[in-house]
Design a protein around this nucleic acid. Structure first.
Lengths: 216, 216
DNA sequence: GTCATTCCGAAACGACGCTACGAAATACCG
DNA sequence: CGGTATTTCGTAGCGTCGTTTCGGAATGAC
């Protein structure tokens, strides 16, 4: 009886692609009206399909992590686990340079209203698992000691820090400076194993904790 | 002839204090109307004294870095330069935990409209100089090799990364996890000198570069 | 053609950043 | 002491953005 539906999953996917392009043009112009125009649909359609603007941002957050996970999975593994970890770091950097606004949405929080929850992050965790596995190979090879998840956390913090500084233009005023500092940062990791600095025990293992989860 | 001025530098300072308190209550409610109410003044007064909302945010950005510089300056220097650098990192962490929204404003970019320029950052550079000096002492003591400015950049990236992850709740679900990972991160630095990883030459020195500047 | 049913998007609403403009306040003068 | 010139102040309004409503359009059944 009714007219045919336009607000289908297909349109939803189309809007997601268009919104990614809108976001890529800058965080400033990312308004619902602009997205509706870019996607050749209407504002209420977006609200029906994504709930609110944060819902759309959350989907883009997942899109970003899926892309990142794909990029991480494409990094080949070799017999040199330390080199593999560094290659993963470079893949992260390439991703953030190729998708500046998207990586800002993922790693920084440029929209005051959208703060991904821990669950959101866990669902976007595949790229991290790749890293944890590489770190685990490092530990097995004796390149580094400690808990793989903890070491991965620290390594990710360094990578995110570098990405944030480079995106803000604070890592150096030219590509040469940034390259040099990235290389230096990576060279300072995994030189030898960690040495306890205060109360640095190992990560306690509980029965409920996922082996490769990056949380807790 | 005219009535006496109310929009004085004193009121400006008062508004700045009130705005800091408003910001501390969360990034969400940081609106000009709210700030005017909190500071017991009017919205146009804020615009006369700060230009626009970004002007006020920029002042808070400077306030934050002045506080951070004070905290860094209060960290005592010892005969163990590596311990001094780690103490500085802990001071950064304490600051970010004591002033979450302010440190978000400083290190992340929670307001889409406000992106501090490189000049803004240079003006808020005192805390970094303290770090560079401590790193320089490390280099002199042979704890680490390389260019002090570059090493400081890397260390700051790590610290900012950890701060960002902890603020987002991604560093662990309890204080214990966060503490352990902070300790691990710091323990992994300065264990031995860096080892070149690719084209890792030293930072080229130009005649115009400030010795302790953190840029370029 | 008519009706019942469903869907769609122009238009409206509150909140926000920002500003124009009339009212208020003062010091001087007649 | 009232009038006036001059400067300052804050109410009220504008445009934009996120969000929702609601009247009309589109479709299939009869």
């Amino acid at each position: 009886m009714p007219r045919l539906k336009q607000r289908t999953p297909e349109l939803r996917a189309h809007v997601l692609v268009a919104a990614e392009a809108t976001l890529a043009r800058g965080v400033e112009g990312f308004t619902t009206k602009q997205i509706a125009t870019d996607a050749e649909t209407s504002v209420p359609a977006i609200y029906e399909m994504f709930g609110d603007k944060n819902g759309l941002l959350r989907e883009l957050f997942f899109v970003g992590f899926r892309k990142l996970a794909t990029a991480a999975a494409e990094v080949p593994t070799s017999d040199h686990p330390r080199a593999d970890v560094l290659a993963l770091a470079r893949a992260y950097r390439s991703f953030s340079l190729a998708h500046p606004s998207l990586s800002k949405l993922m790693f920084s929080q440029p929209f005051a209203s959208f703060a991904p929850t821990v669950d959101d992050l866990a669902a976007a965790d595949a790229s991290r698992r790749t890293l944890v596995k590489a770190v685990r190979r490092c530990i097995k090879a004796g390149v580094v000691h400690g808990d793989a998840v903890d070491v991965s956390h620290v390594f990710l913090a360094l990578v995110h820090g570098l990405i944030g500084q480079e995106a803000a233009g604070w890592l150096g005023e030219g590509k040469a400076s940034c390259d040099r500092r990235w290389d230096l940062a990576l060279s300072m990791f995994f030189v030898t194993g960690p040495r306890p600095v205060a109360s640095g025990g190992a990560r306690p293992r509980t029965k409920t904790s996922e082996p490769d989860s990056v949380h807790h």
